[in-house]
Each structure stands twice: as C-alpha cells, then as structure tokens.
Design a protein around this nucleic acid. Sequence first.
DNA 1: TAGATTGTTAATCGATTAACAATC
DNA 2: TAGATTGTTAATCGATTAACAATC
Lengths: 232, 232
Amino acid sequence: MSENKKISMSVVRRLPRYYRFLLELKNNGIYRISSKALAEKMGASASQIRQDLNCFGGFGQQGYGYDVPKLFDEISAILGLDNQYRTILLGVGNLGRAVVNHVGFQSRGFELTAIFDNNPSIIGTVINGLTVLDAGTLKDYCLSEKVDAAILCLPKESAEQVVDILYGCGVRCFWNFSHLDISMKYSDVVTENVHLNDSLMTLCYCMTADREKHPGITETASAPSRPQSSDK
Amino acid sequence: MSENKKISMSVVRRLPRYYRFLLELKNNGIYRISSKALAEKMGASASQIRQDLNCFGGFGQQGYGYDVPKLFDEISAILGLDNQYRTILLGVGNLGRAVVNHVGFQSRGFELTAIFDNNPSIIGTVINGLTVLDAGTLKDYCLSEKVDAAILCLPKESAEQVVDILYGCGVRCFWNFSHLDISMKYSDVVTENVHLNDSLMTLCYCMTADREKHPGITETASAPSRPQSSDK
DNA sequence: TAGATTGTTAATCGATTAACAATC
DNA sequence: TAGATTGTTAATCGATTAACAATC
C-alpha cells in the first residue's frame, strides 16, 4: 500500500516469477510460506524476497510468513493483470502467428482485438479467431477503435513506419519484437523489447566462454551420464 | 586480448547491441567512430562503452576512436559467432515453428540440425527444410549425432522429461522458451531463458504504473499528435 | 605540436545481502 | 511465554559514471 517509492526494473522483472511460483504453490494447496522457504524454492535469497515485496506493502505476518493466495492476489493486482488493454498486432509472419496462437493475453492484462499485415495473400485469413486486416487500414482502425497497445512482429523498417502512425494515433505502449529503438525517438512510450536474436547471441557467448573455461572435454556423441549432486 | 577477468552478464547482454549498431555503421560505410558518437547513437554513455570494450581488450586508438569494421570483427569473435554449434529443437508448435523459420541460426553461431515433436500429425512434415522427427527417437539421435545445444519450445512438463534425456546424453546448452528452471536441477549447464509471458506481464506492470502516474488522460480514439522534442 | 580520444583509476550510485528489533 | 519470521535499517557488493593521465 505504500506508494510514491520508485520501483526499480530489477524488482519489476522478478514479479512475474513470484507470480508463477505462487500460482504453483496455490494450485498445490499450499496456503502459507515463509520468505526462507520460497527463497529456497526459487533459488533466491529470503532477504531479497522480503525487500522486493516490501516495495509494495507489508503482505506478510511476523512469526507466520505469507498467506499464499493473498500474496498471489496482491502480486496480480500489482502487475495489473486485471486490466484488459486493447491490443493490436502488426506483422503476421511466423513470429506474429506464434504470438497470436501461443501467448495468453487475457490472463496477462491484454486483449488482442485485431491483427494486421500488408501481404495480400495473408490478409483476410483467420488466425486464432482473428481475421488479418490490411495494414493500409491501420490508421483508420486506430482512429475509430480504442488501441492501448501494439505488438510489433515486423522488420525494423516497416516497424518504423507503423510506430509513427501508431504514435500519431495516441498509442503509447509497445511490445516490440523488432530491432527498432522506439524509446529513442519517442520518450514518453512504454516499451518492452524481445530480441530473440540478441538472446541467441548471448547464449553463444556464454557457451563459447564456458568451453574456453572447461577445455579438454571434446564432447563427442555418447557422453557420460554421471550422476548429479545438486549443490548450492 | 586480456583474459581471466570475470565478465558480468550486464556487459555480455550489451554485446549483441554493440554488434547490431556496428553492423549498421559498417553497412553505411562508416569506418571510424568515437565512443562519444557511438554512445549518442545508442543512447548509452561513452564511459560505459569504453569500460565494456576494455573488458576484452584495447580495441581503440587514442585521439582517433574505433575502427568500425575491426571492432565489429572483434565483437563477432568475442560472441563466438563463428561457431556452428549443432543444435536441435524440441516442440514444433506455433512457437517452435516460428523459431525454426524466423531465427537466423547460421550467423549467430548455431546450426539447426534436427527438430522433434511427439504429435503424430506433425511428425514427418517438413519445416524450413527440416523433417520433424519423432520425439521418441530423441535419445537414439543424441547418441549417434553430436548435439551441442537444444531449444525447448514445449510446455514445462514435457520440457522436464526432455531435459533429463538430453542432460544424460551430454547436452549442456539450452535455449529455453519453457518455464522449466533448468539450472536449478543441473548446475553445470549454460541456459538462456526466453519467457514471453513474463515479458508481457512486465509490460502490463509498466503500462499500469505509468497510467497511475499520468492520470486524467482518459485516452480515447482520436488522440492528439503533438510534436515531439527529443530530449536527453 | 595541439587536439582528440582512449584506457583506466577513482567516485558515485544502485542493488543485494546481512542483521536485528518489532511483533505475531 | 518462547519461537518464528517479518519489516526495515545498515553493510556490502557490483555496476555505472566521472575524471584524467597516457598517447595517438
């Protein structure tokens, strides 16, 4: 309930993970948990969990711990998952189609209301109940329908044009799968970037660095399945 | 060229971005750039760029700046993009299909050699030149073929079984789109997690928090397109 | 040479962990 | 009451920024 404190992105990015673990606990019929027990389960520190939660309020009880369903509800509310932000998706290629079909919008505060593409052979097809609209009609759509957020599943160049149109129509929230740097051009927008290619390159670095650290293991086909002692 | 220093993940996660900007500069025929100019372009600080690069070596020249193609090559090498890690993908649903079709593996150090699913109606179909194999043959495949990395595009439960098999076969590198916590069970693996649902919830939080900060703007359809003064 | 810009050290800022009084 | 565990402050650790001598 304490407001006004500035919440750091480090904390915010941990909230969905708390949400997931609490949901699982709840589904398993566990109604109470201490920061210590949760920390162990999540591979975090109890201190961090208490610190994080106390950014938003005192949800626990001394000597008892946290009430799981209550804490779950609190975190849902903090995340704002009860919203239904009206959302459109641009670019119905492989990635766009996967997002439409795969992502659970309703339970995460968003409602997918329309999807657009500029490829004539895709326009008019139906994906997960949504008819692909002509990207040429985007502006008209935005002016007649309320659009809270947009999902960009198109290449940087097209994304740039689309963002200009959307920004002009008042859209200020973007889930961005393109390499366009939206917040560089428009400072008053909320963006969340998903850069799959960057993620893969990061993995490549980690793998390569790891190999250099543990040489000699010229891993060939049939590797040993030595048993594992779970440490830490 | 300086080794042995421990590189922080904060630095590592910025490398792909440097890579992208340097590629663009190179493609635009720009052969020289100072940390100051690059910082401006990227929305970072010159200090950070110099600090980051110097984790790996002194790539610049006092009074001159950085040679763009040279620095690009250095970063490619640091990321290990010249590798061809043999990689398999598990789970050819919407997301898996998008990854197969959409991600550029070759140029990012990976080579997709096989894709698996357990759905009989999908097995045998061809996606981007790869025939979907029966997940039941996974272990045999791993024992006869070299597998450096695996991409998990399946639900948590199936992912758990698959990871056990793969770990047993010596696979130690995972690009993980599931909610399974691999490094919790196996501490000696390299993982990169992509949690789309978490990302969307983070966006929901940011949007909701932003709205609370700027109330009164009950954004309706035709929003003003007030011109933008790019600050900072 | 003078100007520019790096590499690197020192200062600041922020995030995580530890400690402990408050309290259920 | 005694034991447990929180909320919160203080200490530590790490990452970013600033400063500047080295040098091209």
